[in-house]
Design a protein around this nucleic acid. Structure first.
Lengths: 353, 353
DNA sequence: CCTTGTTGTCGAAGCGCTTCGACAAATTCT
DNA sequence: AGAATTTGTCGAAGCGCTTCGACAACAAGG
C-alpha cells in the first residue's frame, strides 16, 4: 500500500506539503505542486479513507435510509436511491444504504460511530418516531417527505398537495364535475405516510374549491383491488367521469378493467395519474400525469445535505412544483353521463372517505 | 464524544482491556468484563468507525454495485439491494451503494482507499470489463451472475439455464409441442447480460432435448413491444400453445393482449414466467413461475463474501436450483390447434432466433 | 534600512483505536 | 517446593492522515 509518506519521499517534500496539495488548504508553489502530483500519479497513491476520516472527523459518506415495505413502489425507491448516489458522487461523497428495519437504532449507529457525515431519510411518516432522533443527532439530516411537525428539519419533496390539486383543475377545466381518487393501499395511509396523505388532502380541497363531486378510495396493488376500488368510487359518485390515480401499480390494471367493460378512455372516463413520467408513457393508453421528479428530488436532498455540512443546517422545507404532462388518457367530459347513472344533479358535493 | 479512553477511566481499567472486551480476542475475567460493559452502557460509548478502520485495516463495509440501466427491472434490483443490506447487517457489516456509471473507477476507488472490505457486483455481463479489475483488486469480490470466464471469481445466481429448462419440461409434460420464449429487451442480450443469455440457452437446449418446436424473441417493456413479440412468436411457430416469459414487465401486458383477442389462459395458451414469486401472483391470472429468489441469492452473496474475508477467497460458482410454482396460467395443451393454424406437423423443430 | 507582511514549506502533535509484547498473579506439573 | 504454564491486565507502538504553529525567504511599506 502506498502512503502519503511514500509520496512525500518520492517528491522530495514533507508529508504535510502533500496533504496541502491534495486539500488545497494552503498555497503551494506551482513547481512543488507539479512534483507532488507527478509522484501521486507515478505511485498510484490513493489516500486511506479510514485515516482521513479519523484525522479530519469527516467520513465523506452519507447514509440513505430506504423503506423496506412491500407496499411501497420499488421502482420509484430505486430511482431515488440511484439519484442520491449520483448526486452524492458529484460532491465527492459516498452513500451507505440503510434499511428501514434497523429503525432508529440504525440512525444512532451510523451517526454515533461517525460512519457517516449526514443522513437522508426516505418515506417519512406524519408522526415519524425517527424525526425526534434526527433532531437530537449531532449530524445533519434531510427528509424526503414532510412530517406533520417539520420544525427544525430540512425536508424536500414534490408538492403533492399541489399535484393533487393540479389534477383536479385539469379535469375540471375539461368539464368534469364528478371525480374519483384512487390512492395507495390502506396501510400506507394508516401509517400516515407523508406523500400519500398530502396528495389526498390536495385532491379534496381542490375538489371543494371547484365545487365538484369527489370520492376517494385506497387501493391494493392487484387486479381485484383495482376492480373493487373502481366499483366503490362509482358507488360513492355515480356519474364519475374522471379518475385520479396516485398508485403506480393500479394504473395498468385500471386501464384494462375500464377497457374490458367497454368504456372508452378518455371519452367515457378520463384518467390522470401522479407517478414517474416514464411509467405513465409505457401503457396501452399514454396517461396524463403529474411527474414525480425522483432525480430532481434526490439532487435537492443531496444539495441540502451538502449545504448543511458546510454552512450549518437550516430547516428549510423545499416543495418542488408539480408539472402536469397531458396525454391521451384525459379529455373533455362526456356530454351525457357515460353510464346508466342519473345525470340529473352533476355537482352534488360528495362526502369524503 | 465518548472515547475508549473515557470508558477505560470510568471502569478503572486500561484502554486495551476495554478493546479486548469489545473484540473478545483475549480472555477477560467476568468481573472486569461486567465493569467495562457497564461503563460502556453508562457513557453510551460507540467506537469510532474511522479509528477502527485505520487501526485494524477493516472497514466493515461492503460495496454493492447496482446497474443503473433503464431496461433493467428495478423492483428486482431493489429486492437484491435490500437483501444484501439485511444479510450484511447480520454479519456486522454495512453496505455502500455504487452505481454502474462509475464503472471500473468506482471499484478501484473504494478498494484503493480501503473504504470497503469487499465488493458485490450485480448484473454481470458475459465479457464484463470489470471482472479483470476485480481479479486484480486486493479485495475479495462476489458476482451476482456468471460471466463467460468465471475462473478465479466467486459467483452466485439462480441457475437460469435450469430454470429455462424446467419451464420447457413443465409445458412439454402438459403435452405442449410448440413453445415460445419472450425475453428481455434486445439491448440486454446485446450487452451479453449473463442471466438473460443463460435462460435463453436453457430454453433452447431443453426444447431441442424434448424435440418440440421453439422460437424466441426479445421484448420491449411496453404494450406495443409485447404485442409485436407475440405476433413474431406466432409467425415463427404457428401452432404456439405455450409461452415462457422471462421479462417482468411483459407479463401483465401479455395477459391482457391474450385476453383481449379472446383466447383463454390456459385453455388456448399456457404461460409460464421466470420472475419473483410475488410478481407472478398479483396478476389477473395467477401465473405459473420459476421463482427468482432474490433474497436467497443476496444472502448467499454476502455469505460468500464473509467467507472470503476470513478464510480467503475461493472461486466458487454457486447456482441455486430453480423452483417452479404451478398456478392457473399453465394447463394441458389444447387437443386441436387453438387458432386457425395448421395442426398438421406439431413438432417441426423451429429455428432459433 | 529596518519593520511588517506574505508565501511556501516543514515538523510534530494528535485523531481513537487495535494489537503486540511484557509481566504479575494464579494455577498446574514434577 | 520450585519450575513451568496459564490467565488477566497493562503500556506503548503504531495505523495514515490533517492541521497547527513555526519559520525561513522574500516582498513591500515607512
Amino acid at each position: 500500500m502506498v502512503t502519503i509518506a511514500d509520496v512525500a519521499r518520492h517528491a522530495g517534500v514533507s508529508i504535510s506539503t502533500v496533504s496541502y496539495v491534495l486539500s488545497g488548504k494552503r498555497s503551494i508553489s506551482a513547481d512543488t505542486e507539479r512534483k507532488v502530483r507527478d509522484s501521486i500519479h507515478d505511485l498510484g497513491y490513493q489516500p486511506n479513507a479510514g485515516a482521513r476520516a479519523l484525522a479530519s472527523s469527516k467520513s465523506n459518506v452519507l447514509a440513505l435510509v430506504v423503506p423496506l415495505r412491500s407496499d411501497m413502489n420499488l421502482p420509484v425507491l430505486m430511482q431515488f436511491a440511484t439519484g442520491v448516489v449520483t448526486a452524492a458522487r458529484a460532491h465527492e461523497h459516498d452513500v451507505l444504504l440503510l434499511t428501514q428495519d434497523e429503525g432508529v437504532a440504525g440512525l444512532r449507529r451510523v451517526a454515533g460511530t461517525a460512519l457517516t457525515d449526514a443522513i437522508i431519510v426516505m418515506d417519512v411518516e406524519q408522526r415519524d418516531p425517527r424525526i425526534d432522533v434526527l433532531r437530537r443527532l449531532h449530524q445533519p439530516s434531510v427528509l424526503i417527505g414532510v412530517p406533520e411537525e417539520p420544525s427544525g428539519l430540512a425536508c424536500v419533496d414534490l408538492d403533492f398537495a399541489a399535484a393533487g390539486g393540479e389534477c383536479v383543475d385539469h379535469l375540471c377545466d375539461l368539464g368534469h364535475r364528478s371525480l374519483g381518487f384512487i390512492g395507495a393501499p390502506t396501510p400506507v395511509y394508516e401509517r400516515g405516510t407523508s406523500f400519500a396523505r398530502r396528495t389526498l388532502a390536495g385532491f379534496q380541497s381542490a375538489a371543494e374549491r371547484r365545487g365538484v363531486a369527489a370520492a376517494s378510495v385506497a387501493c391494493d396493488p392487484s387486479y381485484a383491488g383495482v376492480r373493487d376500488a373502481l366499483a366503490e368510487l362509482r358507488a360513492k359518485t355515480p356519474d364519475l367521469t374522471g379518475v385520479i390515480v396516485h398508485n403506480e401499480d393500479a394504473l395498468a390494471p385500471l386501464l384494462d378493467i375500464v377497457q374490458a367493460e367497454g368504456s372508452a378512455i378518455p371519452d367515457d372516463l378520463s384518467i390522470v395519474a401522479i407517478c414517474p413520467d416514464q411509467h405513465a408513457q409505457n401503457l396501452p393508453v399514454p396517461v396524463s400525469a403529474v411527474t414525480i421528479p425522483t432525480e430532481e428530488i434526490a439532487r435537492n436532498a443531496v444539495e441540502m445535505v451538502m449545504h448543511a455540512l458546510d454552512s450549518g443546517m437550516d430547516a428549510e422545507v423545499r416543495l418542488l412544483s408539480p408539472e402536469l404532462h397531458i396525454r391521451a388518457s384525459s379529455g373533455p367530459a362526456p356530454v351525457s353521463a357515460p353510464r346508466e347513472a342519473n345525470a340529473a344533479s352533476p355537482d352534488t358535493d360528495q362526502a369524503r372517505p
